[in-house]
């Protein structure tokens, strides 16, 4: 018995050694798939991803071009809007590709700390507002004037809105003045957060399908507006400086010129990725095409970006100069 056991063990030791020798003989295929040329020149490229699909579309298009045509080591980091700015100083984040306003963050990180820089507009124009589904605009035409909202408050009551009308917001990290607006315009409404963009879209979709009332925060560029043309509720018009104090806002949102913010270290590093970011420029329609592929058609963000780049090589070439 003992000899049997030791024989088995010796045999298995032999097999182990043999397999080791055999594996040394085969060629590997990992080296063949290593990164393309230009890798040394570009190095690491960290793009922050904020939680809305339009942003994801822009980021993945830029990242795809950087990875395939510039040989960069692209890493995408899922971060909330404001948290991403902290990453500029620590080197975690190189670029925020779509910034909505945030004058306070610009003041802190660009003016005061100098860890970030403005890399210019990305070509998209951002509009935030309060919207209702199209059926409500037909049935209650005067609901599009904010002064009539209080008379419709009962329509929007839900179990989480504490007896008041519900104003549905999206991701709590989105740029929003809604809490202050509801308080300062004396509206009998409570802000309830759906939690995310998909939840918000789902809510509007079922509100239109089932003809249930819904008043909510929404924005352009957003591919959903081509599926369900939500109708905007007009708040007091925006004037310069009316949103300077976030607690005292009582006016509508401005039209945001969306821009790109980069880390100072990244801008000064001479990386070709920085030149790409500085030159990156496309329209709301372009972004909606890619965003729809990701959200509606369920495509992987990388694949959607790859497809768009393939169909629009001329525009990409203009960025690469």
């Amino acid at each position: 018995m003992r000899t049997e056991k030791s024989r088995v063990l010796r045999l298995s030791a032999l097999i182990a050694a043999g397999s080791l020798v055999l594996t040394a003989c085969g060629g590997g295929d990992i080296e063949e798939t290593a990164a393309p040329e230009g890798a040394d020149e570009c190095g690491d490229f960290d793009i922050a991803i904020n939680p809305w699909v339009g942003y994801e579309a822009s980021a993945h298009v830029v990242g795809h071009v950087a990875a395939t045509q510039l040989g960069c080591n692209v890493e995408y980091k899922s971060l909330k809007e404001e948290v991403a700015w902290q990453g500029f100083g620590s080197g975690e984040v190189d670029v925020v590709i779509e910034n909505w306003g945030h004058d306070d963050l610009k003041q802190t990180y660009i003016e005061e700390q100098g860890t970030a820089q403005d890399a210019g507009p990305n070509g998209n124009m951002g509009i935030i507002g309060w919207y209702v589904p199209p059926w409500m605009a037909e049935e209650y035409p005067d609901i599009t004037d904010w002064e009539n909202l209080n008379s419709y408050a009962d329509l929007f009551v839900t179990s989480e809105s504490g007896g008041k009308g519900q104003l549905l917001d999206g991701d709590p990290s989105f740029v929003t003045n809604d809490e202050a607006l509801v308080a300062n315009l004396d509206l009998n409404y409570t802000v309830v957060y759906a939690g995310s963009e998909p939840a918000l879209i789902q809510a509007f979709r079922s509100a239109e399908e089932n003809r249930t009332p819904l008043l909510g925060y929404f924005y352009d560029p957003q591919w959903f507006l081509s599926e369900v043309p939500l109708v905007k509720v007009n708040l007091p018009p925006y004037t310069d400086g009316c949103d300077a104090d976030p607690e005292a806002v009582a006016c509508d949102y401005p039209v945001y010129t969306l821009d790109k913010i980069v880390a100072t270290d990244f801008a000064e590093s001479g990386s070709p990725a920085y030149d790409l970011v500085a030159a990156f420029n496309w329209t709301n329609e372009d972004q909606n095409v890619v965003a729809k592929m990701i959200a509606e058609d369920g495509m992987d963000a990388e694949d959607a970006a790859a497809q768009w780049v393939e169909d629009n090589q001329e525009m990409v070439d203009s960025w690469l100069g």
Binding site: A13, A16, A17, S19, L20, T23, A24, G26, G27, G28, D29, I30, T33
Partner: peptide, 14 residues
């Protein structure tokens, strides 16, 4: 030894 062989395999083959 077998484990090391596996590690080597994982370094060379996708």
């Amino acid at each position: 030894v077998l484990a090391l062989a596996a590690v080597y395999l994982s370094r060379t083959y996708l």
